[in-house]
Computed example of a mutant assay.
Amino acid sequence: MPLNLLTDIPGLRVGHATDLALGSGVTAVLFEGGAVAAVSIQGGAPGTRDTALLDGDATLERVDAIVLSGGSTFGLDAGGGVQAALREAGIGQRFAGIRIPLAPQAILFDLLNGGDKEWGRFPPYRELGHRAALAAAPGAFALGSVGAGTGATTATVKGGLGSASAVTAAGHTVAALVAVNAVGSPLVGEGPWFWAAPYEREGEFGGRGLPAAFTPDLLRPRLKGVDPTATTIGLVATDATLTKAQAKRLAVMAHDGLARAVLPAHAPNDGDTIFAAATGKVPLRDPVAELTLLGHAATLVMARAIARGVFHAEALPVPGAQPCWQDRFGAG
């Protein structure tokens, strides 16, 4: 039975490392046998590792993992931890006889959420990355304030880690995983409505629908802080057979889901970054038409995953922590 998660794609494993005292964490997505991958970066302040390997003119064809992490640029150490775990497991591609696991990464800024960031000389993210990779497993995984979504916040309520899946009319499975840490807001006005409400399935994020009318106040932008620094990072994956160029188009179209679920999106201090990965198990019979269906599905699962991540989030156990959606609206 589908789980409405990224692991509905066969061959994918997801693992989290969560540190509530730190107020941050890491999520690792591992691909059995590797995956064709691409990335689309639409935010004005991104932080990434090894994303140039995913360019269409780069030699690399497949990656072993994708890493999502908190910690801003300190969090880029997490990729090394994931890489170490993969190498210990004998996973990686051989270059000149050397096994090198390839795990491109994106980070989000969660340094001002009240967690303890006085970690000493070296940040903890390499160890968190290693733990996340070791924890990676098929099947169900937690959503909300876990992994890369641990310390995520938005302009209105606590952010978090979300996921959703769907099957296209052509029979391809598409799924999203996203850490929601936006400059903008996932809510219409002050809520409880989600911008992603038109795409909701079976009350997966509360079933509140949309307001009866959109007043000027509801449409007024909600922004995080005086000098907001944020970033929503994620991945869309499919079992379809795609080239790197087709995977790039899928990542681009998935950003439409981000823009439907968070307003405003792609702001100057957002680093909004979405990866796309294809395991190549189900061929495209009509490349143009079926890639369009894949992109449409990627838009919708990304929007739904964003709302689910916020819906399942919990406030950090620190003084002055941002309230979560459940704290404000869950009893209604």
Rank of each mutant, 00 (worst) to 15 (best):
residue 170 A to G: 13
residue 258 L to A: 04
residue 61 E to S: 13
residue 45 A to S: 13
residue 150 T to S: 03
residue 50 D to M: 07
residue 137 A to N: 12
residue 1 M to G: 12
residue 233 I to E: 00
residue 228 P to Y: 15
residue 31 F to K: 00
residue 283 P to I: 06
residue 210 L to D: 01
residue 265 A to N: 13
residue 245 A to S: 11
residue 52 A to E: 13
residue 142 A to Q: 09
residue 259 A to I: 10
residue 235 L to P: 00
residue 55 D to Y: 14
residue 1 M to Y: 11
residue 289 A to D: 15
residue 332 G to S: 13
residue 183 V to Q: 03
residue 325 W to D: 12
residue 69 S to D: 10
residue 43 G to V: 01
residue 329 F to E: 09
residue 53 L to C: 05
residue 263 L to P: 01
residue 112 L to G: 07
residue 189 G to S: 09
residue 159 G to W: 03
residue 33 G to D: 03
residue 34 G to T: 09
residue 40 S to H: 07
residue 115 G to F: 00
residue 241 T to M: 11
residue 267 A to T: 15
residue 172 H to C: 03
residue 70 G to Q: 11
residue 106 A to L: 05
residue 63 V to I: 12
residue 153 T to M: 09
residue 32 E to F: 04
residue 280 G to N: 07
residue 36 V to Y: 06
residue 105 Q to R: 10
residue 166 A to G: 04
residue 327 D to K: 14
residue 141 F to A: 06
residue 139 G to S: 06
residue 177 L to M: 08
residue 108 L to F: 12
residue 251 A to I: 00
residue 37 A to P: 05
residue 316 L to F: 11
residue 70 G to N: 12
residue 217 D to V: 08
residue 86 L to N: 06
residue 118 E to Y: 14
residue 85 A to R: 03
residue 215 T to W: 01
residue 18 T to P: 04
residue 118 E to F: 15
residue 46 P to H: 04
residue 206 G to I: 04
residue 110 D to E: 14
residue 198 P to D: 06
residue 31 F to R: 01
residue 108 L to Y: 14
residue 256 D to A: 07
residue 284 L to T: 00
residue 240 A to K: 08
residue 94 R to C: 09
residue 228 P to Q: 03
residue 190 E to K: 11
residue 39 V to I: 07
residue 240 A to D: 02
residue 43 G to C: 03
residue 225 G to K: 05
residue 304 R to D: 11
residue 332 G to W: 04
residue 199 Y to C: 00
residue 19 D to F: 04
residue 196 A to V: 01
residue 127 E to C: 06
residue 200 E to Q: 06
residue 311 F to Y: 15
residue 195 W to L: 09
residue 214 F to V: 05
residue 327 D to A: 12
residue 168 T to L: 07
residue 243 T to I: 10
residue 101 P to V: 02
residue 274 I to F: 10
residue 173 T to F: 03
residue 199 Y to F: 14
residue 264 P to I: 14
residue 32 E to A: 15
residue 297 A to G: 08
residue 300 L to S: 09
residue 132 A to W: 04
residue 97 G to F: 05
residue 81 G to N: 08
residue 139 G to L: 03
residue 173 T to K: 07
residue 113 N to Q: 01
residue 18 T to W: 00
residue 266 H to T: 14
residue 60 L to E: 06
residue 152 A to E: 10
residue 80 G to A: 11
residue 71 G to S: 12
residue 123 P to G: 15
residue 154 T to V: 11
residue 32 E to R: 03
residue 264 P to Y: 15
residue 150 T to Q: 05
